[in-house]
Amino acid sequence: MQRQRNGLQKLAGLLEIPQDIVMDLPRITMLGNKQLLVENHKGIIEYTPSLVRIKLSQGELIVKGSGLTLGNFQAEQILIEGTVREIQYDT
């Protein structure tokens, strides 16, 4: 499994294909500490105004902050608005 993944990564690098498509990785876009857009996620695990846990293909993404609100204007996207203080990967 791990070897297959490494091979895919090499192939993607060779063909210059964006790796997030090949490897099913999340694409995270941040706008200062105001907005956080997560694409290619697998759902929400937990949500409170100070903590958001998002399930990824491997592990989860933990966003800490204050006054966080969620929204999605397109499928497979999550937009977190509020004041983001901390982002953490948990595998």
């Binding site: 937990e46 969620l70 999550i78």
Partner: peptide, 21 residues
């Protein structure tokens, strides 16, 4: 399980916004 509700909505292409708790 409100989180599950949100996940299912996203899966069904139901757009949600301004989610607060």
């Amino acid at each position: 399980m409100p989180e599950k509700f949100i996940n299912l909505c996203i899966a069904q292409h139901i757009f949600l916004w301004g989610i607060t708790k």
